[in-house]
Amino acid sequence: MNDPDRLEQPWRLWASVAILSVFAFSVLFGFVLMPVMQGRAAGIDAFEAICRALGITPGSPAARQPTTNAKAQPATRVAWSADLLNSLTKATAAGESLAGSCAGCHGRDGRAVEVKLYPDLAGQSAAAIYKQLHDFKTGSRPSALMTPMVQALTEEQMVAVSAHFAAFPVRPIPAAQLPAAGAAIEGLVARGDSGRGMPACNACHGDQSGGPTEAPRLSRQSREYLAAQLRAFKTGERRNDIYSRMRSVAAPLTESEIDGLALFYASTRTY
């Protein structure tokens, strides 16, 4: 026992036996016993179950789903591709010349002339502007004013005009401050309400939140415009949000919460 090399020798044999038997048990159990027993409950025969466990045959083969004639409308027809998102980051001269016809309502520099009715476009996310233009054109978001305006625009023109307005700076906070929205509203913005299954507003609308691509900036839009859009989502009058992302959040909001949230975003620069 004094020879340091001798110490391990009596262990080697049965340590190897132990490891090999664990390995053999795992193979037997994982590839044979478990699949056969689980397969029996699912009506799969033993041979098939073993082949599936080994990966020789695929698992449940993709079963042909019944064809559907379900209409995709009226949710949006926009499909985000990497190319489209890339092109939205570049302001072009084409965008500037097209923007002339928007200036009557949305202003030359993207600051709306009548903020209660029309949204500011300055500093808005280009993806958000593009999606709304696209939805106005396809009728996903019907509008007596905008739908005829955008009919003539091509894909490239919608991209150009979106990128153009996105490049302007956001309107500054007015000198006369609006009243604070209150702690309850700020809680909704920052944390949501788990009791009603409502995620926080800034989970999607926060700066760099990592939420959906088309989520717009909300800060510095007018109270009236924001409240009108929330009400339209709540009643289902506006339904161009993919998979009811906004409708499901707006539905449980109370009238006073809608006004409070509109006030909050109208008076903040953060989001």
Binding site: G59, S60, A62, T68, A70, A72, A75, A79, S244
Partner: peptide, 20 residues
């Protein structure tokens, strides 16, 4: 064990996973 591909960009535009 199901392996089945679908285009996430156009999921909402037609077929099985349209909203309706």
């Amino acid at each position: 064990s199901n392996i089945e591909r679908i285009d996430p960009k156009t999921l909402h535009l037609g077929g099985e996973f349209t909203e309706a």
